[in-house]
Amino acid sequence: MKGHIRKRGNKYAIVVDMGRDNNGKRKQKWFSGYDKKKDAERDLPIILNDINQGTFVEPANETYMSYLEKWIKNKKSQIKPTTLDTYQRLLRVHIIPGLGHLKLGKMNRLHIKEFYSYLEEEKELAPASIKKIHTVIRSSLSDALEDGLIAKNISAGIKTPRIGRSEIKVWDEVQLMNFLNAIKAETLYIAFHLPAMTGMRRSEVLGIRWKDIDFENKILRVVTTITTKGKSDGKTQNSYSRPIDLDDGTIAELKNRKKQVAKDKLKAGTAYDDQDLVVCTSLGKPISPRNLNRLWYKLRDKVDIPNIRFHDLRHTHATLMLLQGIPAKVVSERLGHASIQTTLNTYGHLLPSIQKEAIQIFSRNLIEKSNNFISIHEG
């Protein structure tokens, strides 16, 4: 039995010759969806060997969601009621919305790794929560393997964010301003200015529309998000629209961006796809999270400052606000955290130093006012 690699568009496929049918017609089995030729070349001998040994498993064509719905029903008699409740909640809230649309037999490790990154960076789930989600995914795929629906458990060996992870990395005021000043001429400068000055998530920045901005009252409302899983309307999905107050500098940058978008529209004419987006291509189309990340790394590496992730611009904003004495409750609302506890869990390590600075400021102000009062009355 022979096989070869074939390119289809910008993807690669493994093609295995399966001989001929009763009518003499040539039979072939295709394994598509490889982004890199070397990955297809790696799997080709494995697939040929499995077919020759009779151990090859035909990829399951049903969706992961369909499989999970049956899997959790069978799991009821095998686990405790409290564990079942946890599994059902994780499936409903995270796993099915994130991975359920994929074909069970076509899922790969990259799907799961990107899903965990999304949960950590966009949803801001704690490492312990992601570890629980991983447990459910690993268990379900282990059973699918045992039932002969998949050839291997792709979740095995995938690392989840470490519980008790190291302290988040942020820039100080000077480093942040050095970066922003260095990239000021960048066409998409606003995409980096906003998270630094508002604490917005990447998905929120990509989803901002001009109609979400109230220039007169200097307020931006987070309604729509764009993630690696596409666009979603936060107002309909989460009954939620978060207002963020804007400073004068950010208002000015948004007005500059609006002028640039107007020029792009005029230049593109009918080719412009107007989706009312603030952060978009020169033709008005949405920018993918991956492409924005690529631009981020390119710009960041041009400046002589410590390496941080795009998401850490949000952490930088929150950290600088807390260090300047802004109440944690205000920071929590600005970031859109579900509760102030999330804010305290994320930035709690800052509170001791903030309290030390706060008591010194309190003491200085009290003494100053007291001295002024005495001077006035003695005078």
Rank of each mutant, 00 (worst) to 15 (best):
Y347E: 06
I79N: 04
Q341G: 05
D21N: 13
V16R: 10
H311S: 09
C280Y: 02
L266E: 08
N256M: 13
N108P: 07
I190Y: 04
R364C: 11
L141I: 11
Y116S: 10
L323D: 01
M200K: 13
D50P: 00
V57N: 12
Y64A: 08
L84N: 00
K369T: 06
M197L: 13
E114P: 01
L104A: 09
P161Y: 12
I213H: 09
K211F: 05
I305V: 14
T135C: 05
T319A: 03
I208A: 06
Q237I: 02
I367D: 06
Q324L: 02
P97H: 04
V279G: 02
Q275E: 11
G284P: 07
T227V: 01
G19W: 06
E167A: 10
T187L: 04
G9T: 12
G199R: 08
R300N: 06
L149D: 10
I5G: 11
K235C: 03
P195N: 05
N178S: 12
P81Y: 02
S142D: 06
P286T: 00
R209G: 05
L110P: 03
D304L: 09
N74V: 11
P81T: 04
Q28S: 09
K184W: 02
D233C: 01
K235E: 13
E216A: 04
F192L: 07
R221T: 14
A40Q: 08
Q360D: 15
Y116R: 10
L350A: 10
I14W: 12
A271S: 01
A151D: 13
K123G: 01
G98A: 09
Y64D: 08
K329D: 08
V205A: 08
I305P: 11
N293L: 14
S353I: 07
Q237P: 00
K73P: 10
I359D: 07
I112H: 08
L220W: 06
D247M: 07
I244W: 06
S232P: 00
L351E: 07
T225F: 00
M107Q: 13
I354T: 11
N371L: 13
S66R: 12
A328T: 14
T342D: 02
M18P: 06
S339E: 01
I150R: 12
G325W: 02
L313D: 01
L91I: 05
